[in-house]
Design a protein around this nucleic acid. Structure first.
Lengths: 343, 343
DNA sequence: CTGAAAGCGCTTACAG
DNA sequence: CTGAAAGCGCTTACAG
């Protein structure tokens, strides 16, 4: 393995000089720098990350902590959550990290089971900062995380204790329902996430805001909650509604898994989308783009949230933990595909 | 920050002894060990990974190199690849790494653009070994990778130069087509991947094996290739076939994106699945489980391939690079859902 | 079974 | 602008 010393010898300078060159210090004479750079090239020298990390007290790695409900169970089935939400968010992070040499380490963390411990990545001091994805983190856990004194950025959900990048849920839901109304639909039902989610109130507010603009009231029975954030959850919810005799012209779903559950039920009843009934979804994912028919959905910009979070992280690392918390709200936007017609 | 020295002082031993305890050496007297362990507990000591890595010459990180066609472009649309293949494989790796303290770093690498360089993770010596996912790696690139002298395991595709975990494509495709035949379908068409894929021959072999068992011949016109591995690719392929007048009883698709493209075309024609036409897919993903109707598909066990690859990696790190290459073939299995009936 | 000492490959004041 | 020296926090022979 070629080290600093080899480069120094080859270039005829001291180790400090080589180090200064590597770290782009302006203190080195141009001619010396070039000589050193040539030696680095020739020898194929690469700085040892551990040696550097040891003295600079940094890992050049960031952690993504994904909150999960229980043990990760790999399945593609309709009655399981898809994991696409955290996957898409995580995909955006490297975009914001481009042109840095930060690596990204991922860990799934079950708050309910491992709640008393810390994620291994932070416990073992493997990372210089962490991203929290998912809404399952408790305030207590976040407090314990903060004791490690590394930057923490929440993605997808607002937490008042730390920096966050989240989405305007009310506005997003509003956009979807509003689009249905704009297209002439009036008899609209909303299939919401399971009751336990705190963001449900924001969703309902979005529905109501749109309805009121059209001087309509949401029928209380037409606001239903799924048991799970899965296809089956949506399927069962629409089935119950249908069996109660409800015949909406359009359905707004809280996310794609739920929307696809609804679509499956309708398919079984031989009800055509969008000819017989319209459906609009929220969140957006490959499930929406690939759905049959393609789902009109509100895109909450998951990748972009990840990217922005990465930028905040870099800033925190550079400037330190002091200063105002940042709470960025990303605007959702409607993606019109083929599941809504004209009423 | 608490260091080895603090623990040593607190426990009244030397640093070497603490180090031996941490590394579970049997050389330490039981009573001493307990004293040291108590001190570690009390002080909340965590070994510094960089210091340890520096002397042991290891990173305790592994890299996943995902081959991509061109720049990653984030979209959920029907005319883009989904990325689910590499995502699912990558998800399996941590399972095989459980109870070790290896972290997993991911890098997307565009062979055609960055072909002359090495992935940053390996160039900068950030990882102790790498997993190659995707079939786009060239033999030359692999040779250059091997010069780094770290273990390399290919997942999903066989390469003769390195360890690999892959799938029996012919058997998988056979399973799917065979199932159609078993259910009574005879007029079957096969929608294959784009021509450039080397695995296409294996797929065709699978189709033919099944057909011959039933004393049938594949009509050459009914074996068609998509332009892209996307929904649109499948959509356009089936459209061409349909417009040529072909009316198959059943369709076998080379993967879910293609299958969903086919399903979209059929939906537009108001052709019901499975009542009017059956469809079987291959690979399996959340796109299949959530499809409307749910897709019967051949599961190639992507997560399990990742898990096995991780185990091989651990073995290679322990035992070194010597010894026979391992080439594991994972058996595919049919997942019966709702897209195939009885003919 | 335990301790003193050298060394892993860097960076960073400090002189000059 | 450059070099000698100390130090980051560990592990590992080597004595004893």
């Amino acid at each position: 393995m070629v080290t600093l010393l080899d480069v120094a010898a080859s270039a005829g300078v001291s180790r400090s000089t080589v180090s200064l060159v590597i770290n782009k210090s302006p203190l080195v004479k141009d001619e010396t720098r070039q000589r050193v750079e040539r030696a680095i090239q020739e020898l194929g020298y690469v700085p040892n990350p551990n040696a550097r990390g040891l003295v600079k007290k940094e890992n050049k790695s960031l952690g993504v902590i994904i909150a999960i409900e229980d043990q990760p169970y790999n399945t593609y089935e309709f009655n399981y959550e898809t994991g696409l939400y955290s996957y898409n968010i995580t995909n955006g992070i490297p975009v914001g990290l481009a042109n840095t040499d930060y690596g990204l380490l991922t860990e799934r963390f079950c708050v309910s089971i491992q709640g008393k411990e810390l994620p291994a990545l932070v416990k073992n001091n493997r990372v210089d900062g962490i991203f929290l994805v998912g809404g399952l983190f408790t305030p207590e856990l976040i407090e314990r995380l903060k004791e490690k004194k590394i930057p923490i950025i929440a993605i997808g959900r607002y937490y008042d204790q730390i920096d966050s990048v989240s989405t305007d849920v009310t506005q997003g839901v509003y956009l979807g329902v509003r689009y249905l109304l704009d297209q002439g639909y009036r008899k609209i039902c909303y299939i919401n996430c399971p009751q336990i989610y705190r963001s449900n109130a924001e969703r309902v507010a979005g529905v109501q805001k749109a309805m009121r603009e059209f001087h309509l009231e949401m029928k209380p029975d037409w606001l239903v909650y799924c048991k799970h954030n899965t296809g089956e959850g949506g399927y069962e919810a629409i089935k119950r509604l249908w069996q109660s005799g409800a015949r909406p012209q359009a359905i707004a779903a809280a996310n794609e898994p739920i929307a696809l559950g609804i679509m499956r039920f309708l398919y079984e009843q031989d009800i055509r989308i969008p000819e017989d009934i319209a459906i609009v979804s929220y969140e957006d994912s490959v499930l929406g783009g690939y759905a049959v028919p393609a789902l009109t959905s509100v895109n909450i910009q998951k990748e972009y949230m990840g990217e922005l979070a990465a930028r905040i992280m870099l800033k925190r690392i550079r400037k330190g933990q002091e200063g105002e918390l940042e709470h960025i709200i990303v605007e959702p936007n409607l993606v019109v595909r083929s599941s809504v017609g004209k009423c």
